[in-house]
Design a protein around this nucleic acid. Structure first.
Lengths: 148, 148
DNA sequence: CCCAAAATCATCCGTTCGGATGACGCGCGT
DNA sequence: ACGCGCGTCATCCGAACGGATGATTTTGGG
């Protein structure tokens, strides 16, 4: 910005000097002062426009348009409900895998325990949730924000 | 923008006319042509700066800021997937009730059909979804946006 | 009216699930 | 050392589920 003003000043000075140098020649050549004035006007108008552009190039009006977005809704487990229901980590893990659509056998293989153990965990978590079926347990688990 | 250019042109014309009018008086008053030129330069430079400012004053930068909203994300069924999978309305209804945690028997009572019919619908929708268990069907159904 | 799709109901059979119950080991805090 | 919570594994049994298949009725569009 300041650089531009300085440059403009220098250019203006140089131009004025140049104009004064050729001024007499124009006069000698019997050209009217009008042409001289027009030339000066054109040159300085151009310079002015250029300077104006330079001065304001970075003064943009920033328009912030806020757009509502569906939001990824990051899941946060309701630990208080987990605690109040007395659901253990293992039970919660099994519940998550049930929600993922795995069978007891698949869950057993996934977590390296016997299918019987998975059944025990699931039965306990069903009991704590008051669910009679795994689909119901999943539904309740999601409702209570125990699982995503 | 165009309005400004036009206005500038008119002003310039008027100024030139005005200058020409007073030009002779200045000459009569024995003032040098340098002063006249300086005046013209100053006026047109100002005009140019003003025009430059007008030309660029309204360059707006639109910044789109995405605002995450807890958004209840109103569920919209992906009908295209429903169609491409060839899932019928009744099958979809049964799938929803399965996702709600109901047993086949409860679903049968809810929609006033026999449990066998519910089993048929569920079997078909499992087949179309490539699911082997109802929990898996629910998971896939939610993933594919067939059910909320 | 006729056809195709959808909906309904059924039977058989094997698998999975859920409930009830008992038992064992491990870590932790009193 | 003892009790307790947790995780683990097991057995038995009935209920629920899923697959395969066949049949009938209803419905919507050409």
């Amino acid at each position: 910005m300041r650089k531009h003003v300085l440059l403009y000043g220098l250019l203006a000075g140089a131009l004025i000097a140049a104009l004064r140098l050729i001024e007499y020649r124009w006069l000698v050549l019997e050209h009217s002062v009008e042409i001289y004035g027009g030339l000066v006007a054109a040159v300085f108008a151009s310079l002015g426009i250029w300077l104006g552009l330079k001065l304001t190039r970075h003064t943009e009006t920033v328009v912030v348009r806020e757009v509502e977005v569906p939001a990824p809704v990051s899941f946060v487990r309701d630990q208080s409900k987990v605690d109040s229901l007395g659901i253990t980590p293992r039970e919660l893990e099994v519940l998550e895998l049930i929600a993922a659509g795995l069978s007891n056998k698949e869950i057993a293989e996934r977590v390296y325990v016997s299918e019987n153990t998975v059944k025990t965990h699931s039965s306990r978590v069903f009991d704590k949730l008051g669910a009679r079926r795994r689909t119901q347990a999943v539904q309740l688990g999601k409702e209570l924000r125990l699982i995503p």
